[in-house]
Design a protein around this nucleic acid. Sequence first.
DNA 1: CACTTGACCTGTCCGC
DNA 2: TGCGGACAGGTCAAGT
Length: 289
Amino acid sequence: MPELPEVETIRRGLSELIINRCIKAVDFDWPKSFPNARSDVERFLVGAKVTNVRRRAKVLLIDISTDYSLVIHLKMTGQLVFRAKSVAFGAGHPSDSLIGELPDKSTRVTFTFVDGSHLYFNDQRKFGWVRLMPTLEVPNIDFMQKVGPEPLEADFTIDQFTQRFARRANTSIKAALLDQTVIAGVGNIYADESLWGAKIHPLTKVVDLPVAKYSLLYTELRYVMNLAIEKGGSTDRNYVNAKGKKGSYIDFVRVFRREGQSCSRCGTEIIKIRVAGRGTHICPHCQKL
DNA sequence: CACTTGACCTGTCCGC
DNA sequence: TGCGGACAGGTCAAGT
C-alpha cells in the first residue's frame, strides 16, 4: 500500500507520538506478521523505550533503547496507528478517519506502552511484517544492501538518477521505476503520476528514453513525492497516518485511478493499461510510445 | 545476470 | 442474493 510519501508521513507522526514511550507488552498471533520468538520480545522490547523513528525506502525503523530496532514493512495494506489511553468513538467519528475501535479484525500486532497508550499494526492482507533485530544489523539485511538511493535527498542528482537505470536497459521505464534497487520508494501511484508529468509512455524501453526525458522524470518524481508528503500521502482505500487519518494527495492526482476522466493538459480521456503486471494509468495523447 | 510471472492474503466490486 | 473472477498502494522466489 504505502509508498515513500505515505511511509514518511507515518514516520513523522510516530516521531511525535511514540519517542520516549516505554513498552509494557507486545501481543501478536500471526507469525508471518511478527516472526520473532517471544523470548526475544521479552528480552529486547518489553521494558525498553522508543528512541527514534527512521525510514529507508518504504521500510520503517523504530529504534529501541536496547540497541534493537523494529523493522517494519507495510506492503499493500499495512497501517501503524497510535491510540492514546482512551478515545471515545461512535457518533462523532471524524470523516478523515477510516478506522474505529482498535484492535479490530485486521490487527496483527499490538504494542502497549506503560502509560496505557497503544500502537497497532493492522494489515488486512497479511503481506506486511514487523521484526525485531539488533540496530547494527539492520544495514546488513538483504533489502538494505540492494535498495537504491533516496530520491528526495538533497544530494541526489539528475546524473545519479539517470545512471541508476543502466542495469535495466531492456525493461520498460515503469518496471524500472518500480524496481527498488534502482530508486528507493517509488510505487504504483507515483510511478504513474511522474510519468504523466514527464510525458513518458510507461512502456518506453529504458534504453530508448532520451537523456533529456530522464532529467524531466527526475524533476517530476521529486515534485509529486514532495507534494504528496505535504498532503499527508494518498488514501485510495486503506492508507492512514499514525493518527488513523487519511492523506489528501489523491485529490491532486492527474492520472492515477482517473481512467474515463479527461486529461487536465489536453482533455483526452485517460485510459488504463497493464504494465509490469500493474494497473497503469496514462493519457494516450500526452504519453506516446 | 536481466527479465517476467506467480505466490503470498483478504476484501470488494462487477457481471452473470 | 449468490457466485466466480479480476483486482488492489509490494516484494520475493521461481521460471525462462
